[in-house]
Simulated scan of single mutants.
Amino acid sequence: MSQPFVVHFNSVAIHLGPIQVHWYGLMYLFGFMGGWALGEYRRRRGRLPVTSDALGDLVFYEMMGVILGGRIWYMLFYYAGGPRWIWTEPLALFRVWDGGMSFHGGLIGVLVAGLWWSRRHKLHFFDVVDFVAPLVPVGLGLGRLGNFINGELWGKPGDVLWAMIFPNAHDEDAAMAANDPHLAQLMQQFNGLPRHPSQLYELALEGVVMFTVLWVVSLKPRPRYLISGLFALMYGCFRFAVEFVRVPDAQLGYLAWGWLTMGQIQSVPLIVVGLWLLWMSRNAPTLPLASPAPVQKA
């Protein structure tokens, strides 16, 4: 095996005096901005009968849903020590600089925000979800790129040609190599274990593939529930599959049978819901195009 690529980037993108702007935070910002721009593009083509200001409100509420839902869900299901922090250390919820966000919680936050917004604007909830779904993979893909830059959420050791060294996994590498002569040899040769770049797998599947499929399918008006169902089904399947080559969270490990992870458990309901929504879409109405909004000339 040739020398693997070493994933060692500076996680800080910009220094503004004493303030450090991290790449991971910028990925969130770029994701929201990209989703907003694409949403405005779709709105101008009559895909949701609302004003530009109303769409801006939706983006803001969804952004809050991602952040609050993702953080709360992580603290409930992934935080070391379990949910005891609620009564022993409630301020831990706000220590976002320590890391810890969950996609599944962010998704719930987005759905709650979308439900509230859709009721305010007297729109069918799933017409709003179908509108938003093709925009979400932009943020998903950029978030996985942020994980890669941070050198976190790495994959299992592997001998694939594109395996990479993650210096942040050095302690875990040493522990694994101590009980395996082959891994010990690799550790000595490369000063680390070549691992699957699982973040890039998720970037490709959850970002590029999901965006391409959802965007192309939604170019024409589709029956209600179809786009939402495709989103849920694809994400659930992709996440479940990648978990087989991704190292589980250290504080949780495998939950059953030596391979089942928390990410897989939480992805199964998405697969079921996705199939149910696709079935529902067979006899569902198709939202007609609204009158296209006029394009303002500079």
Results as ranks from 00 to 15, higher is better:
T212G: 13
G263E: 04
T286E: 05
L107H: 11
I14K: 05
V208C: 11
F5W: 07
L287C: 11
W162C: 07
V245M: 03
A54S: 14
L226K: 14
R222V: 15
V128H: 09
L48N: 02
G106K: 01
M176Y: 04
S267M: 09
A184N: 12
M101P: 03
P90I: 04
H196L: 00
M187G: 06
K297G: 01
E152V: 10
A177E: 00
Q188R: 03
G31Q: 05
H104W: 05
Y79N: 04
S291R: 10
L203E: 01
G274E: 04
N191S: 11
S291M: 05
S267V: 11
P194Q: 08
L233M: 08
Y28L: 08
I149V: 15
L68A: 13
H124W: 10
F211S: 00
L38Y: 14
D53Y: 12
V66N: 01
N191D: 11
G82W: 09
V216E: 00
L255T: 03
Q251I: 04
G155P: 06
L252F: 14
F148H: 08
R47Y: 15
C237W: 14
A92E: 01
P248C: 05
R195G: 00
H121F: 15
F103D: 00
D127A: 15
G17W: 07
P18W: 12
M75D: 00
L219T: 12
V295C: 03
G109T: 05
A178G: 02
V242D: 03
V7A: 09
P285M: 12
L76P: 04
Q3C: 01
A80T: 08
G31W: 09
L16V: 15
F94H: 02
V242T: 14
V96C: 07
P18Y: 12
P49I: 09
N191I: 06
P288Q: 08
G192A: 00
L115K: 07
H8K: 01
N283L: 12
P18A: 09
G158Q: 01
L230G: 14
N283M: 11
G70H: 00
R43Q: 08
L111A: 13
Y225P: 02
H8N: 06
L142Y: 12
D159H: 06
R222C: 13
L135M: 15
M280N: 11
I149W: 12
G56A: 08
K156V: 14
P83L: 09
P194G: 09
A163D: 01
